[in-house]
Amino acid sequence: MTAWYSFFKATLVRPAVKWWFRVKIEGTEKIPDGGCVLAANHLDAGDTFSLPSLIKPKVTFPAKKELFMGKSLKGRVVAWFLTAVGQAPIDRSGGRASVAGLGSVEDVLDAGGVVAIFPEGTRSPDGRLYKGHTGVARLALTSGRPVLPVAMINTRMVKSKVGIPTMRDARIIIGDPMDFSEYRDQVNDLHVLRWVTNEVMGAIQQMTGQTYVDVYASRVKRGELKGTELSKQLLAYPNQNQTRPVPATQFPAGAPVLDDPTVRE
């Protein structure tokens, strides 16, 4: 753990989260030794510091690479801070660049570290749970590490009586580890990646009780779905219409891997 990370956590962030924001956390004993991925829903900016401040291991969040390249005074301060506390840059432009950008985060997992990720990719615009990006599945399959779903509950910032932002009845719940190692050889199978991602989002949904919207939050916040009615995109659970992929290990070497239409989640 870097010295700056330990300093900020012990002297500033953890005391603020515990005594001012009064965030409660459950399930920290479920975090395994040897590395894991913490996958959480994303309600507000406080999620990014509340979770790592309340667990013992150092947590690495993938931060967009542009934040490490600031030229202004503010930008340089942000870049220094992210580097000082050991955060990992990632390309969020999409496509192959985003996949390749996961490398620095994978290094953390390979070294037995803890990586936290918000699969929705951005804060929820209305408190509902939105479709997850498949980066969480890629990390799980390439690293072989378990994914622990994390529920952020009531972590939205609200104004206190003195006008300073706080939280009310905020809780963080860490769920049971999810093992997807049987799909490790199928990291390039898009159906597998989507199914694994949806399983993680479904576990989060079970803990939060959020309504699930089967579109990316970015499309609702600033894309073509901004301001539109989304009732047709609501699902009871993320994998509602998905078939469970058959693990490659169940087929002879060299045989094509097909989905089993009789197995549904």
Rank of each mutant, 00 (worst) to 15 (best):
P165M: 04
P149R: 03
R145I: 07
K71P: 06
I173P: 01
V263Q: 12
F81D: 00
G75F: 11
T243M: 05
G27F: 01
V105E: 03
R92P: 09
L82H: 04
M178W: 08
D33L: 05
P15L: 05
G103L: 12
S160T: 06
E229I: 14
G75C: 06
A97Y: 08
A45D: 09
G27E: 04
G101W: 03
A40I: 12
T11E: 03
T83L: 09
I173F: 04
K232Y: 09
Q206L: 13
T166E: 10
R244K: 06
I153W: 02
D47P: 04
R138E: 04
T228H: 12
K71D: 15
L193P: 06
K221A: 12
D33F: 04
D110M: 11
L67D: 09
K18E: 13
L12H: 08
F61K: 01
Q233M: 08
D126C: 12
T208E: 10
K64H: 09
K71T: 15
F68L: 05
F68A: 02
V105S: 14
N188E: 15
Q233C: 02
L141M: 05
G144H: 03
K71Y: 07
W20N: 13
F180T: 00
D44Y: 02
L258Y: 14
Q233N: 11
I90Q: 11
Q250H: 07
R128F: 08
R92L: 13
P57E: 00
K71M: 11
Q87T: 09
N198T: 04
G70E: 12
L67C: 11
G163H: 07
A170P: 00
K74M: 15
V37L: 12
F81H: 01
P57I: 03
E66I: 12
G46M: 09
Q242W: 09
G127P: 03
P57W: 00
A63P: 02
R264N: 10
R156K: 15
S218H: 15
G103C: 10
Y237P: 02
K64W: 07
K58G: 05
R96W: 00
R14T: 03
V37N: 05
K18D: 08
V85F: 05
R219Q: 15
T142M: 13
L109T: 08
T83E: 15
M152H: 06
Q206S: 13
E29P: 02
L54T: 01
Q250E: 15
Q242V: 11
K65R: 10
D91Y: 04
Q186H: 13
R128Y: 08
K56L: 10
K58M: 12
E29W: 07
G254V: 12
D260R: 12
Q250W: 06
V99F: 03
Y212N: 03
P247Q: 07
V114I: 11
